[in-house]
Nucleic acid binder design. Structure first.
Lengths: 185, 185
DNA sequence: GGCCTTATGTTGACGATGGACACATTATCG
DNA sequence: CGATAATGTGTCCATCGTCAACATAAGGCC
């Protein structure tokens, strides 16, 4: 006889992550609820706990995937374009960016997340160290990251909104307004 | 007869804000609960609603006060010191900073908050416009803000932690590594 | 094929929270 | 002194995260 073919979903973990990704951008990281996710996956409200020990674990998995995608988005770029791509990523996935960088997750509890988060910066560091003209590549890399990271946050939160009609173009100009201390002084 | 002298607290709103300020730094903006606040103020769990329409309204008031205090902290500084003071403020009040800039509040719903938030940037803009050597002061001001803002976020979230023992000193170096495009080119 | 172990879902419960509503108490001001 | 508004209280509800006990399915071993 036809077994209760839906008792075991069979593909729940990826389904939850996909649904989470979708719901995240609609609801934001704070109002994203495990139960709503379970509902959307057509499964009982406790099923997700078989795959994620915690609500935070689910969010951490979503964030880790976000860092992976961010890494991909940056990988095809170089120079100032990388900075622009960073800001664009944030503008295109605002809630995901907030999840990744909004201070909600305790990275120390999620090693996989920490590793995923560290990767993009390592690439950035390598790129700056390859430029012999820059005086202190490590500091410059940190400054570059901070610049685009802050820009992303400020644009997302609307703090620069008054003067900005095209955020992407604005970001390009702001990034262009910055120099890094060179060896020559 | 001795009246139930505590029926009307008499000073509830400021008390709630003070308690909120204290609890915020302990619990973070997400786990701060209205009920816990009411408990600490020795009042029923519904009393706060007479003074704040919403949980978000209470948070907005706390954030607005944060912006005011940030403005004060920056007012006594100038030049690169302002940037350093910005980062220091974030490091000293991490949860408050996250509340102010973590994307949890919908500024459009809280005009007083929006106004308070805009003030520090106006001061920064004015300072940059007063420097005739800088090519595009508005872009430079945005870049300066983005730089210290991103730096604050990254330091708070531990993304730069591997290389940083003294965050404040590190911030000073990073800020020092940046130049702004000048009129001369 | 039949059985046992383990992975996966389900049901039901608990405590906490934000919030709505009706009601009680106190201040204020005519 | 008495009406009216401001401020607190009590009760109630929906939602949520999480725990514990139970049900079902899948896969390996005989």
């Amino acid at each position: 006889m036809c077994p209760m073919s839906t008792y075991h979903h069979g593909d729940l973990r990826p389904t939850l992550l996909r649904a989470g990704q979708a719901l995240l951008e609609k609801a934001g990281p704070d109002t994203l609820s495990l139960r709503e996710l379970a509902r959307r996956a057509g499964v009982s409200h406790n099923a997700p706990y078989r795959h994620f020990s915690d609500r935070e674990a689910l969010l951490a998995a979503l964030a880790a995937d976000g860092f992976r995608r961010l890494g991909e988005a940056l990988a095809t770029t170089s120079g100032r374009e990388t900075g622009l791509a960073y800001v664009r990523f944030a503008l295109e996935h605002p809630q995901l960016f907030r999840l990744m960088f909004g201070g909600r997750l305790r990275f120390s509890r999620h090693p996989a997340l920490s590793e995923a988060a560290a990767q993009p910066y390592q690439a950035l560091l390598a790129a700056f160290r390859a430029q012999p003209a820059i005086a202190d590549p490590d500091k410059a890399a940190a400054a570059a990251w901070a610049l685009v990271h802050g820009l992303a946050h400020l644009l997302l939160d609307g703090h620069l909104a008054r003067q900005v009609s095209d955020p992407s173009a604005f970001a390009a100009e702001v990034i262009g307004a910055v120099r890094f201390a060179s060896r020559a002084g």
